[in-house]
Design a protein around this nucleic acid. Structure first.
Lengths: 194, 194, 194, 194
DNA sequence: TATGAATGAGGTTTCATTCAT
DNA sequence: TATGAATGAAACCTCATTCAT
């Protein structure tokens, strides 16, 4: 048994990611999370208000990180929109690079997460806005076709990425994340191009 | 004897689609489904083995219809791969055209559905195979780039479509399905092109 | 399928005996009884008030028959109490001779049956009274020991017979009913003797 | 932490005995057992896997105690088989002496109990084997008649005892257990004698 | 802060019984 | 008399959450 010295809050969150990935939020049991975190079931409630709060804070971490990793990209003036899209996609995949389980939680519980207001949701919206902004820039610079609906595209791309991620997370050996993202970058820039 | 009047099996299925769309499968209550179907709770079990069976048969209907609507397209020789992709996308969207709730069920419960073998899953696989086949054809005819990974793309496209559908289903007035599919068709054919 | 011409009431009763023997009263399903009786489930209620009523009438038949088969024995003056006991036991076993299933119902549901007043219960009491009467006679004639408690013995004997019957009914090949009853007769008459 | 006070496991088992005796296993409600045990319904499942498990462990206790109380008797060499039978019967009745309700559970649910393998069943079989062994010994020493079928007798005796117990448990005032067992001992030894 | 025993609300499912035909 | 579709009450069990220590 690992000596309990460290950060129980984090231990619980990480255990929860594993359990949510395995069973989905609804079937996940607090008792199992507590066990994996080497903590008593009751202790979970010292750090989290309830089960849903754990999920919320997992997503807060995720979208905050994604937002912060990508906000610099949108603002850069030394690269063109095509390159921005490429970096943007890279950033996104990097987050999941060594966390297949987080990818599954993202894919399966994002709906649950989006349903109600939360701090994490703000970062999620900001993240989407950045993607949208990059595409808009590209349309202005005529790098991208002006006939595309930014609104439609941003969901399409995010959804596509989600689904690909899911399959990668379930069978990481079928194709590498690097291969996936190169494919997507090529596909996206061609698809967007004017 | 009391004779079947109307079609309770269908009533229940349609009620279930509404409830699953609203609450998700896990939170959905049989009592609520029965109420919407104007049927006693116990009657649900005359037509469906259990709650999961309802979901299975909803997905069976969906993928069977999608498969059957699209199988002719893949086999046609009078149109080129680009047109096939366009028809394929059209077919897909047509199914949801007047069933926003079905789109939500599809989006939210597809994971659940894919997890275990079922008759519907066979049609789902066949459907995916058709999409994959069309793209492969296009690569052969050099209409599509030979650098794309069919495997990655097929999930990307399906996932993207799923997510777009979800947002449309939640707020059908923001953009019409027709607008969405025209956007996607343009984006896809460009993205795939060689 | 047997042509339904005959006695549905009887068909149902016989089906019920089989099902009660197999599953016990509580787990027995009306649907299964109806199926074995080649009758619709609802039809059962044309002939029997409810599930319990079927059991009651099965036991009524049983105890009425046992009572009527044995009442002549108690009254005979040409044989002594020892012989009466022997005939009494013979009569009892004869009823089950070719109905192992009835024996199981008797053994398992007798409790249920005794709990509430019914016509069958009257015959059951009369039957016990006859056995008691024969033993009392034997005590008077000094064939049987005067130290025995008739009350205790009559339950002991009936209970013993019940349990032996049960094991015979479950595995009729282990020992024949004839062998059983000869053993018991010998045991009883010796046990009772003065 | 909230600490186990008293012995809830035992409280529940004793409450269950009362409820099973009153209503029989199938009609017994967990809610009622929990109420009598002064425990929340859910707490029952902290100590017992399910309803059946409660019954199993009641019978395990019973047959283990009976087995352990009687195993010394069979092995003794200082008393003859007739005395062994007497002690054996005494032991048996002693267990129920101040637990009329346990006697009812035994009588009503023994069938249920015997149907499936369990730890208690092992003790039950051992107990029966001991009774059988004592009788066999008696036959060898010619204290008992060699014409009796041990197999038949062991069930007959157990069954008889069961039924007598039942009537005693339902109306303990009609005759004392002591009177019953003296009667039976006399009856048995005479019945068995050569 | 930490525990884990205790709680009790809540939902799926079964099945005896009813009743329209 | 006969049917069998429809009913709906009832109960086991799970598990998130609480709380005494």
């Amino acid at each position: 048994m690992r000596v309990k010295e460290g950060n129980k809050e984090l231990d619980i969150k990480e255990a929860a990611i594993r359990v949510f990935a395995e069973s989905g939020f609804h079937k996940a049991k607090i008792a199992k999370i507590a066990e994996l975190a080497n903590v008593a079931a009751g202790s979970v409630y010292l750090y989290y208000k309830n089960k849903e709060d754990i999920l919320d804070r997992i997503f807060l971490d995720l979208w905050k990180e994604l937002y912060e990793n990508t906000k610099a990209i949108a603002e850069r003036s030394d690269i063109n929109p095509v390159e921005k899209i490429e970096y943007f996609v890279d950033s996104f995949f990097n987050v999941f690079n060594q966390k297949p389980e987080m990818a599954l939680v993202f894919v399966h519980e994002q709906n649950q997460f989006v349903k109600k207001p939360s701090e994490g949701l703000i970062y999620y919206d900001k993240f989407l806005a950045q993607g949208e902004f990059i595409i808009s820039q590209g349309i202005e610079t005529e790098d991208f076709s002006k006939n595309i609906s930014v609104k439609v595209l941003r969901y399409f791309i995010l959804g596509g990425v989600r689904f690909v991620l899911e399959h990668w997370a379930k069978a990481p050996d079928d194709y590498t994340l690097v291969a996936i993202r190169e494919n997507l970058k090529a596909f996206l820039t061609k698809g967007l191009s004017s």
